[in-house]
Design a binder for these strands. Structure first.
Lengths: 122, 122
DNA sequence: TATACATATGAACAATTGTTCATATGTTTT
DNA sequence: AAAACATATGAACAATTGTTCATATGTATA
C-alpha cells in the first residue's frame, strides 16, 4: 500500500503500526470527555487547591478558617474556592456573614486517595 | 482571650473557629506530600497527556503511533512523554530505531477511571 | 561510511494561571 | 443609618506552560 509509506504531514513521521493505531483509535473516549477529564485534574493540580480540598475532607470550614489554616490571604482562598465551586468539587452555605464550604461529593476524597496511593508505592 | 479577637495579618481576617482550624491542622498531611500530590495531578491536567495516557492504557505504542493517533507533531508528543517519564507514569523500551511506551503501573488507570466516575455522576 | 529514519531536546513565543491589591457586595451590629 | 466584618471579584503582574521550529542524537540500512 502506498499510504503506509507516505510520510504523514501531521505527525512528521510514518505510521509504524497501523493496526495498533486503528485499534486504539476505536477505544478512545470522546474528545469532549477527555477534555473534561483534563480540566478536572487541572483543578487538583495546584497546591493551594489540594490543601483546601484536603482540609475540607476533614471538616466544614469558612473562608477565614481556611485562610488562617493555610496562612494565606482571604482573597487568594476566595479566588480558589470559586474555581472549586465551578468544578462542583465543593459546596457552600451561608450563615449570616459567614460562608461555610465543604466537599461536594465523596469522589473527591477517592481521587485524592488514589493519587496518594500512587505516590506511596514509588 | 485576646488572640481570638485580634485581626490576623496573614489571612486578613479573624479566626472564626479556632478549634476547627486546630483540629484540621493536626490532620493535614505533610506539606511535601501535598506538593507531590498536586504535581501528580498537574501531569494529568493536560489534554494531550491525558490522551497519551488513555491511549497507552489500551496498547503499547511508539512515539510515531501516538503522534499519528492524536494528529499532533512528533516533537510535541516527545516533549509530553518526557514529562510522563519524569513522573514515572510511563516506561519505555527501545527496539532499534523505535521507542515503545507503555503505562508504568496500574494506578494510572485507576486515577483515570476515578476521574471519569466523578464526571459521569454529575 | 553516508543516508534515512525515529526520537529527543533547546530556544522562543503565545497563552494560561495564581497571587496581590483595591474595592465591591452582603450581612450584622451599634 | 452608619460602621464593622466576612466574603467576592476585577485588573494587573509575574511565573509557568505547551507548542513550534530547528537541530541534535542514536540506530539501521544502502
Amino acid at each position: 500500500m502506498n499510504s503506509e509509506n507516505d510520510r504523514i504531514a501531521s505527525c512528521d513521521c510514518n505510521i509504524i503500526h497501523k493496526e495498533t493505531v486503528e485499534y486504539v483509535a476505536g477505544k478512545m473516549p470522546a474528545e469532549e470527555d477527555l477534555y473534561d477529564l483534563a480540566e478536572l485534574f487541572k483543578v487538583f493540580g495546584d497546591t493551594t487547591r489540594i490543601k483546601i480540598l484536603c482540609a475540607l475532607s476533614e471538616a466544614e470550614m469558612c473562608v477565614c478558617d481556611i485562610a488562617s489554616l493555610l496562612n494565606m490571604t482571604q482573597s487568594s482562598i476566595s479566588h480558589q474556592l470559586r474555581i472549586l465551586k465551578q468544578s462542583r468539587l465543593v459546596r457552600y452555605r451561608r450563615d449570616g456573614k459567614v460562608v461555610y464550604y465543604s466537599l461536594d461529593d465523596e469522589h473527591v476524597k477517592q481521587i485524592f486517595d488514589q493519587g496518594l496511593i500512587h505516590l506511596n508505592e514509588k
